[in-house]
Design a protein around this nucleic acid. Sequence first.
DNA 1: AAATAAATCCCCTAATCATGTGATATCTAG
DNA 2: CTAGATATCACATGATTAGGGGATTTATTT
Lengths: 208, 208
Amino acid sequence: MIKVLLYEDNDLLRESISCMLQIMEGMELLGAFDHANNVEAEVKVHRPDLILMDIDMPGRNGIDATRLVKKLFPEVYILIMTVFDDSDNVLNAIKVGASGYLLKKHIANRLFDAVEEILEGGAPMSPAVAKLVIQSMQRPQQLTDYGLTEREKDILVSLSKGNSFKLIAADCKISIDTVRTHIKRIYEKLQVHCQTEAVSKAINEGLV
Amino acid sequence: MIKVLLYEDNDLLRESISCMLQIMEGMELLGAFDHANNVEAEVKVHRPDLILMDIDMPGRNGIDATRLVKKLFPEVYILIMTVFDDSDNVLNAIKVGASGYLLKKHIANRLFDAVEEILEGGAPMSPAVAKLVIQSMQRPQQLTDYGLTEREKDILVSLSKGNSFKLIAADCKISIDTVRTHIKRIYEKLQVHCQTEAVSKAINEGLV
DNA sequence: AAATAAATCCCCTAATCATGTGATATCTAG
DNA sequence: CTAGATATCACATGATTAGGGGATTTATTT
């Protein structure tokens, strides 16, 4: 039997999800709560396999609750159910350890499949949610290139590894003065004025 | 009519997918190829709305092809279909601009839905694929903290912005000598020996 | 009460970096 | 062929950083 806890502040929805769970065989609903303020104690007592978690609840929200539960009981699966499909909520919930993310409009016809997917190690997501996740991975591609030449990129990569000018020179088999020149051009192109800023920018913008 | 191109080196599979597409109304298959070596020209001629792309093909693989197409024609949707569900292939395909990722075992019963989802702006993924994507987002949490104190983290953050010791001192309202001391401790704890290495490590390990 | 960790400050020296100016050799495109 | 971009090297000056000392204050722990 899969042991389940439910957190959902809307009485109607909580009731109807409870009903759905009772119909699904192999599921055992151990508790249904309208807030997550005591989630720590409740999880400790019931030791669920799966938690269905709303985001928007009075007191502690579902994301903080998820973070907390995952920190204390990493093995618990958590499926987020919410009306929100804005990028911050979605990405934070996932970063914090949610196993899946269903929009409420999809609960009726996907909850059953979603729970199965989770237990099989999958990660069910509403299409719009999946889209946000994919976009967040696609964005961090290098947007600007700042017109750096290949050689300048070499130098920048070497610099990012913490190499001194002397070491970069040795690495690239050029004189230290040439390294200096390249670095100057890099500073100009990236609009920075020191190593740390260049490295920081390079890493954060995916140049290295 | 949705214009579609298909790249798949397995003759049988290519044929059967072609058939499926012909059954789906609103779909127009403009071409089906067993390799992606001429993908650039083919896309230029046919101007498809959607490309179904295998990964493992002779010559240019599906990921490189996806990268190329997305660079030249960013508006084209690309759905990856493959037997591979290893993390490198999946994550790379997505980073490179794929709109969805179906394992071949799911093509038969999910292709239709997947195409619809894509056209609606969604991102269809096989459960195992979604799992990989989510895991890749959950990992980059900070693993080690290196025992840095709060103050040291402050300094490190300021350093990462490209501030000189002098500026950090002003920022934190402490003397430059104190900054030096903190930086020394940071170097010890991170096991580095200069600013760039510290910043690089800090960013890459999620400390800042 | 003593020990420890954290944050603060000070001094010194050698090494490294930032910045400017100038020069040469190649290669590509107009 | 000439202008421009790229890669290379040189020199000089002042500022900044690395790495080595040592010291005080405040909290927290033992």
